[in-house]
Nucleic acid binder design. Structure first.
Length: 541
DNA sequence: ACTACGTTGTTTCC
DNA sequence: GGAAACAACGTAGT
């Protein structure tokens, strides 16, 4: 057993050296420092029952991104005379064993607002406290402390962006100097009987070559890690005009050679990049230019969106569900697994939608507006499938999937919360055409359509058979027919949304399971009447 | 009851 | 590229 004072730095998110207050505290006034990451099999080990390669909780793309981030962290720690201690098992149990086995008197980890960590961290803190171990758990993942904002708002989270921005104001540390580097770290103490490993490879986690082939790693352009994050940041910051004029809604979702955004989201998700440091960098640029865009559309505005969703998610019980979620409209979504499967597997027959879903599967990332299109299509726009189903697919496949932001955006796009104008439906045909009339994005992600003339590429089913033959793509054989007709499906969705909203209003939000069941039946009856007037006559008599 | 406001729709016409 | 028409939601404040 080591003598002197030992600190344990537990990494979860916050996989970085720069602006990492927990690491700073752990390394200060300690004889020994144990930097730990716990490989949780639930998050990392293969689960072959899942619909895509990966674990029960994460797709392989995000697991790979995480491993790369860990390797980078390990190599940074080694440069400071330390290393990352990788352990395996249930994080709660492993941590308790570490605390018992090593002579730890200080436990440091970044505060996390997600329900999973809320309950886990509570248990650990109470164990530490009973063992006389000091814990330090700073809020460093977001710009603001969600709890502070909620308190300022009288106990409830603000539900609009503008009210959030007003409440939040400027962060207290806005003009203070962040600690961007560490010169050295205390040595690692005796690890006793704990089993320590290097950062594993994907193969060492138990994945097979065939699973790796499905992933097609060479096709995923984003590499994890703090170094990569800072490199990306430093590539675009000197382009002050681009930073100052950034306007999110004007971005091009079809740009893929050079994505039209920063693609820093996965790095922020894992904390490879500090949101506070990013915030200060943006402010530095803004100070140097005459004028710049403002939230919500500006680049800084995007960081505030992130904090907005973290705040609402933290202050809303059952935020990730429709039932029992006080801010979520109760809507009688369909349970049609065949439609969900078609969407998930990129065979809806709408090339714009399918191309986006292929990019999601291959890259684990798509442009924000592309996400809007497929989320709207799955839910209130066309298929009327439950947003929780789409959320699950995104949560698995996105490398930047973040619990608060992903759920928040699905609530938003499905018109379940925050946003209610369900008549505004993204067209699976014209929206993409606006940006990419030639269909280059579709041709890249759906090579089967690469020779389709641009007149038909967004609606290949309208191409004459001779054109389809020449393009070597027969609709219904080489590329699927559409699962629904957009005009009739979106009209039907509008009607259902209208009825559901009326029900929610009538019952003042307390819609029961039975109420939804009744509405489903009513919607079905009304639909039959429209299709078959005879039933209508019978009913009227 | 009325009004202002809210990330980011589509189509048509100029 | 911009403007207007289309059809029109809920929430929060008065």
């Amino acid at each position: 057993m080591a003598t002197g004072s030992g600190s344990l730095m537990w990494f979860r998110k916050g996989l970085r050296i720069h602006d990492n207050p927990a690491l700073e505290r752990a390394s200060g006034a300690s004889s020994f420092l144990y930097p730990v990451f716990v490989i949780d099999p639930r998050y990392m080990a293969p689960d072959r029952r899942a619909f895509s390669p990966g674990s029960s909780l994460a797709g392989l793309n995000r697991i790979r991104f995480l491993l790369e981030s860990l390797s980078d962290l390990d190599s940074s720690l080694r440069k400071l005379g330390s290393r990352l201690l990788v352990l395996k098992g249930d994080p709660g149990e492993v941590l308790v064993r570490c605390l018992k086995e090593w002579n730890i008197n200080k436990l440091c980890f970044e505060y996390d607002t997600e329900p999973y960590y809320q309950s886990l961290d509570e248990k650990l803190k109470s164990f530490a406290s009973s063992a006389g171990i000091e814990t330090f758990s700073p809020v460093s993942h977001t710009l603001f402390n969600p709890a502070d904002i909620i308190e300022k708002n009288g106990g409830r989270p603000p539900l609009s962006y503008q009210s959030f921005v007003k409440l939040a104001g400027k962060p207290l540390w806005e003009s203070s100097t962040l600690n961007l580097s560490i010169s050295s770290l205390p040595p690692i103490g005796d690890v006793g009987s704990m089993e320590i490993s290097e950062v594993p490879t994907i193969i060492e986690l138990g994945y097979s070559d065939s699973e790796l082939n499905v992933l097609q790693v060479d096709e995923t352009p984003f590499r994890g890690g703090e170094s990569e994050a800072l490199k990306r940041l430093k590539e675009f910051l000197p382009n002050k005009a681009w930073v100052a004029n950034f306007e999110k809604p004007k971005g091009d979702p079809s740009a893929f050679d050079k994505p039209d955004t920063t693609v820093l989201s996965p790095y922020l998700k894992f904390g490879c990049l500090s949101s506070g440091y990013f915030y200060q960098c943006l402010n530095d640029v803004y100070r140097d230019v005459k004028k710049h865009t403002q939230p919500p559309v500006s680049l800084l505005g995007q960081l505030l969106w992130r904090d907005f969703f973290y705040t609402v998610a933290f202050g809303t019980p059952n935020f990730d569900r429709m039932k029992g979620n006080r801010i979520c409209k109760q809507i009688p979504w369909d349970e049609r697994d065949e439609l969900l499967a078609a969407w998930r597997e990129a065979r809806t027959g709408y090339p714009w939608i399918d191309a986006i879903m292929v990019q999601l599967k291959k890259w684990g990332w798509m442009h924000h507006l592309a996400r809007h299109c497929v989320a709207c299509f799955l839910t209130r726009g066309d298929l009327f499938v439950h947003w929780e189903k789409g959320r699950d697919v995104f949560e698995r496949l996105l490398i930047d999937s973040d619990w608060a932001i992903n759920n928040g955006n699905w609530l938003w796009l499905s018109c379940s919360s925050f946003f209610y104008q369900y008549n505004r439906i993204y067209s699976p045909i014209s929206f993409g055409k606006k940006y990419d009339p030639n269909g280059n994005y579709i041709r890249h992600f759906l090579p089967v359509l690469k020779d389709m003339p641009k007149e038909y590429i967004y609606e290949p089913w309208t191409a004459p058979l001779s054109v389809q033959t020449k393009a070597k793509c027969i609709i219904g054989r080489d590329y699927p027919k559409t699962v629904v007709g957009h005009d009739s499906a979106s009209k039907e969705c509008r009607r259902k949304m209208g009825e559901a909203y009326a029900l929610n209003q009538r019952l003042n939000g307390s819609v029961s399971e039975q109420d939804l069941k009744n509405l489903r039946r009513k919607l079905e009856e009304d639909r039959t009447e429209e299709v078959n007037p005879r039933t209508m006559k019978q009913k009227r008599i």
